[in-house]
Design a protein around this nucleic acid. Sequence first.
DNA 1: ATACTTCCATCGTCAGACGATGGGAAGAAA
DNA 2: TTTCTTCCCATCGTCTGACGATGGAAGTAT
Lengths: 111, 111
Amino acid sequence: MGRKSGPELLPGTLDLLILRTLAAGSQHGYGIASHLKTVSDDVLQVGESSLYPALQRLLLNGWVEAAWGTSENNRRARFYSLTAAGRRQLTQKRDEFDRIVFAIHRVLDAT
Amino acid sequence: MGRKSGPELLPGTLDLLILRTLAAGSQHGYGIASHLKTVSDDVLQVGESSLYPALQRLLLNGWVEAAWGTSENNRRARFYSLTAAGRRQLTQKRDEFDRIVFAIHRVLDAT
DNA sequence: ATACTTCCATCGTCAGACGATGGGAAGAAA
DNA sequence: TTTCTTCCCATCGTCTGACGATGGAAGTAT
């Protein structure tokens, strides 16, 4: 029976979520995942095997940059932060998301 | 350069959209696609190569059933309609969608 | 010592969306 | 009559992306 109970995400929204999280300040991977889980009240549970590839993607696209540092818990951590292009991308992805969700609602609420 | 201008859909929502469309009455594939495009004001543009595989999926899962008939335009067409299980699935997928979109908004609107 | 938590990351798999492609039948245009 | 457009069916191959499993390493608590 393939799946467990339900998808933890809407595919295609992970980049947006990460970008938005980083817009509030630099964070390391683990911190991003925790933040999403907490803020979403445990609805959004992004595993590390989704998160890190996504971060690689964002790095490659130049939307985030990374720097090694030390976490609050005194551990070696890689801090990701938004670039200018990342900020632009955030706006754009957000608009696109809103546009599509609005459209979907039109369908769902249609007479 | 890979993409054209933007994704026409949120991946994972196509089944929901089709199910919801059929909840308003039997339709053939082409009709479903037209309906989505019209109602969404051209935002949701589902191509036939997305649509038909999706319909096959829905058939396999027993959420829709199909019957050959004749379209309004006097053409041979396959009419898809919701089964009882399909109606249940629609409710469930819709709830799930709302839940996740709500969670995403919590992230997007976070302080 | 040992176990748990935090933090990094990759590999292999699988689902799903989509471009390209192919066909057939009805009606309109040439 | 031929041609074109619209309607309607469907598949194949590709690519993106999420995720389970896996494997470290370093700090903190028991």
